[in-house]
């Protein structure tokens, strides 16, 4: 009977640090260009809807920008792409097809929660409120 070959490895693992990560107390390390949440920079977005047409998961819905925001003149229809991250497959097709390069790509991946389910909060921070 041969001695199990894994014995040494097992003993080494017993005394070494655990390989698992205590998420969410410790963040998983990801690359800088990891495909995380993306949202439109409304200063550049023209409301052309191309991203909504091309989205393979139908996760993008063109939505009116609330009246309290100042919208650039290049966006006459005052609409912006609202991404539903629950539906989004993070293929970055929208980022790549955007004619004005309006999308901001991040490496954020912790989108569990109520406020971060859509790109509304991310996108609207790129605009100034009227009068501010």
């Amino acid at each position: 009977m041969k001695r199990p070959r894994l014995l040494g490895l097992v003993l080494k693992n017993l005394v070494s640090k655990p390989a698992t990560i205590q998420y969410p107390r410790v963040k998983t390390p990801v690359e800088l260009d990891f495909r995380g949440v993306q949202y439109a920079d409304l200063g550049k977005c023209t409301g052309c809807s191309l991203c909504a047409i091309e989205c393979p998961a139908d996760a993008i819905k063109m939505t009116p920008i609330p009246p309290e925001y100042e919208v650039p003149k290049t966006n006459p229809r005052r609409i912006y792409p609202l991404i539903n991250y629950g539906k989004c497959v993070f293929c970055y097709r929208c980022v790549k097809v955007c004619p004005t390069n309006a999308y901001i790509a991040t490496n954020k991946y912790d989108i569990a929660g109520v406020s971060r389910l859509t790109s509304e909060a991310f996108s609207l921070t790129t605009l100034r409120r009227v009068g501010s």
């Binding site: 990801v30 690359e31 990891f34 993070f90 293929c91």
Partner: peptide, 11 residues
């Protein structure tokens, strides 16, 4: 992940 930007779904 380094190559494609995602661990599993390469796209």
């Amino acid at each position: 992940e380094i190559l494609t930007g995602s661990r599993v779904m390469a796209d």
